[in-house]
């Protein structure tokens, strides 16, 4: 096979794979813009709507208004809760992981090695083992149905991101730190004023991955949040789909699902570069 031909084959495979990847999402989009009759007629008639002939944009406000028991409140409560929880989780994760990562990378203290090994070992631990006792613990604090069980642990660092910060800080030239130390800068100030500003790439990666994980988290909010006003979008969407579980109004379901995905899609396209570099950094060296 000539080089040109093999290139063509590879290109064809790439396109085929991409079509397969996008296809369900495209169908989701067309369903969300169809009338209920169009959406459910597809199967029985053996016809397929590649493009909605009359896009029903009003499906979107109609779907969101239907979430929860009070029109619009269900959606906006959930949106606000998700934003608050996600934002605070991101802040907590970046602050704690960078601080701990800096100490592991640059400061000499006895016990550093064993502690670091212990931390790496906990990465393998399945979350289900700690999930139940943590629920009991947080319940005894009276934290059930508040944001706290979802936010507070983020302020105590996560091994994976601590590891990433440590790898980055270990490569910072000593001269930079030395100069600050001669000027009488304390270790906390070095972290805050010198280290944090130069590790923007790692901060970006940590923030993005934490954002995605927190935004999509389902099990945590499912366990801890109980009243409708405190639900996150993931849990609210699940109640919504249970309510319309027979898919007689699939167009509304798809519209609501797409809206909850939208922030992650936007973030992905805005921060594509960080995504790519982050996976390379975290994955291969991990």
């Amino acid at each position: 096979m000539s080089r040109r031909n093999s290139n063509l084959v590879i290109f064809a495979l790439l396109i085929l794979g991409s079509v397969g990847m996008v296809f369900p999402f495209w169908w989701m989009l067309t369903t969300s813009l169809s009338t209920p009759a169009e959406a459910t007629a597809a199967g029985s008639a053996g016809t397929f709507n590649w493009l909605p002939t009359h896009p029903q944009f009003q499906n979107y406000p109609a779907a969101l208004a239907r979430m929860g028991s009070r029109p619009w409140f269900g959606f906006f409560d959930a949106l606000a809760n998700t934003i608050i929880i996600t934002a605070l989780t991101v802040v907590g994760q970046v602050l704690s992981c960078s601080l701990v990562g800096y100490a592991f990378a640059r400061l000499r203290f006895r016990g550093r090695g064993p502690l670091f090994i212990l931390m790496v070992a906990t990465m393998m631990l399945p979350a289900q083992v700690t999930m139940i006792p943590m629920f009991i613990m947080f319940r005894s604090f009276g934290w059930v149905d508040t944001y706290l069980p979802l936010i507070v642990p983020a302020f105590f660092g996560a091994p994976f991101f601590i590891f990433m910060f440590r790898q980055f800080f270990a490569q910072v030239p000593e001269a930079l730190v030395e100069a600050a130390r001669v000027d009488g800068c304390g270790h906390f100030r070095i972290w805050w004023q010198i280290m944090l500003p130069i590790c923007k790439p790692v901060i970006a990666i940590t923030a993005i991955f934490t954002f995605i994980a927190a935004w999509n988290d389902f099990l945590g909010p499912l366990i801890y949040l109980q009243t409708e006003e405190n639900m996150t979008l993931a849990v609210a969407l699940n109640s919504f789909q249970n309510q319309y579980g027979d898919f007689r109004e699939a167009n509304y379901l798809m519209a609501a699902s797409l809206v909850t995905m939208l922030p992650c899609i936007v973030l992905f396209f805005v921060a594509q570069k960080q995504f790519v570099s982050g996976l390379a950094l975290g994955g291969v060296k991990g």
Partner: peptide, 8 residues
């Protein structure tokens, strides 16, 4: 160092 790793 110890106080910085203390969060974790």
């Amino acid at each position: 160092g110890l106080s910085m790793v203390s969060p974790w």
